[in-house]
Nucleic acid binder design. Structure first.
Lengths: 238, 238
DNA sequence: TATAATGTTAATATTTGGTTAATGCATTAT
DNA sequence: ATAATGCATTAACCAAATATTAACATTATA
């Protein structure tokens, strides 16, 4: 079975449920490490490399969202699935901002969880594979080569982007027409989320806007208090 | 029947078996396009949108796995079911790596296939829903995207909502035609329940009423001392 | 009709974002 | 060794968006 060697960090304060879920996952050939609260979860995360984190949202001391943020600061790539009993819509947004890859309501169908796990792990691993091929993006009349960090407008000389400029633009493009939450960029690119990194990001947004000015169909819009949104008007993104 | 409009791409080189399977699926109200080899299958896939692909594994020129990979490069979401006479474990693994959603050995019980198809299509569509629909609401002739905080009346330019406007409207919608208690909004949105927050909320209700004026079937009513009630008159909320 | 609750608009306060320039730090070139 | 360069952060100031508070009018209910 292909799940062998895939290591999962499971953080769940309900010991009973946690043990059952752990067994079920191990039966499906995953390697599973169980932590019984956020603190322990973070310690275990730091000590090893995981292919996936499954976090319960409601835990004493440190909730799943907080833990996710800490994990993101250490490692921006590892997939995260939230488990929650809540159905309120607000919480989905919170998870989304923390960089959730998926969301699952308790109680849930274990088959569904298994499917989601497989889908996510595969998606991520194919992303890594294609990452070496898929670093080229078109956005309006621009072309970004995120490996060389070149931004080219039509046939002109490429503009050289700094690492942060490049990462930020790439993230905006990956969320094209959709909200790119501040928090997500800060935890993933800046690896810290405070007043100063936030202002730093604003500076970079200003820089990107300047670069993108030549194409009036491309715009970075702000969604107050939430993040930014890259829109392409006469959009045939291609 | 719910299968109407669901389009299936069936790629099978055994023309006899392919035709029988196609007929059986069409009898169950699926729309079926049959391709007789991998090449033809990929051409047909590119030309249309499908809800599901059923691929025979053993085909001349281009086998099912190769085809699946090509399909995944174009579209990472579409469910794929492999048909195979093989039972070898490696092949199952190969299929999962190519992004299989399910696996079926020939000869098989057609009822089982039908069940699996239904399960997969439903699973996929509910996945999309939990990612998308959480943020989208229809109310009368309006549409609210609570992630981008856009309120759109018919085809007009979206109105941008502030965070509080957005939260309050969302909460009203979630209680549509029913009482939304003052207290609930105050504790959940304002995180405090006193005279001033209460007056603040009244200000926001006034703002929302102004936004909703264009559709005379939509109204926010007050229930004295209790809260508010969003009603849609000729209500086919959709 | 007295009281409390709500409707509404405007003034004010607060938070967040846009932008440019200055600063600090590390790397590279001379 | 020192200067030049590139990059990220921080500071400073202003503008825009949002939220609260005030003020006054209206309505519901006992």
């Amino acid at each position: 079975m292909e799940n062998v060697n895939k290591k999962i960090l499971l953080v769940e304060d309900d010991l009973n449920f946690g043990a059952v879920l752990k067994d079920y996952l191990m039966l499906n050939d995953f390697e599973v490490v169980l932590a019984k609260n956020g603190m322990e979860g973070f310690e275990k995360f730091k000590k090893d490399n995981y292919d996936l984190c499954i976090l319960d949202v409601m835990m004493p001391y440190k909730d799943g969202y907080t833990l996710a943020k800490e994990i993101r600061e250490k490692n921006s790539e590892v997939p995260i699935i939230f488990l929650t009993a809540k159905t309120m819509k607000e919480d989905v947004m919170k998870g989304y901002k923390a960089g959730a890859d998926d969301y699952l309501n308790k109680p849930f169908d274990s088959e569904v969880l298994l499917m989601k796990i497989k889908a996510i792990i595969q998606r991520k691993s194919s992303e890594v594979k294609t990452d070496q091929v898929q670093f080229e993006f078109n956005i309006g009349k621009f072309h970004l080569n995120s490996k060389l960090r070149f931004l080219t407008f039509q046939n002109e000389e490429p503009i050289k982007l700094s690492p942060k400029e490049n990462e930020l633009l790439k993230m905006l493009i990956l969320h094209e027409n959709d909200l790119m939450p501040r928090e997500l960029a800060l935890t993933k690119i800046w690896r810290d989320d405070n007043y100063f990194t936030s202002r730093s990001m604003d500076v970079y947004i200003a820089k990107l806007r300047k670069y993108l000015k030549p194409d009036e169909d491309v715009e970075i819009l702000n969604i107050h208090g939430e993040g930014f949104r890259l829109v392409v008007k006469s959009s045939t993104t291609a």
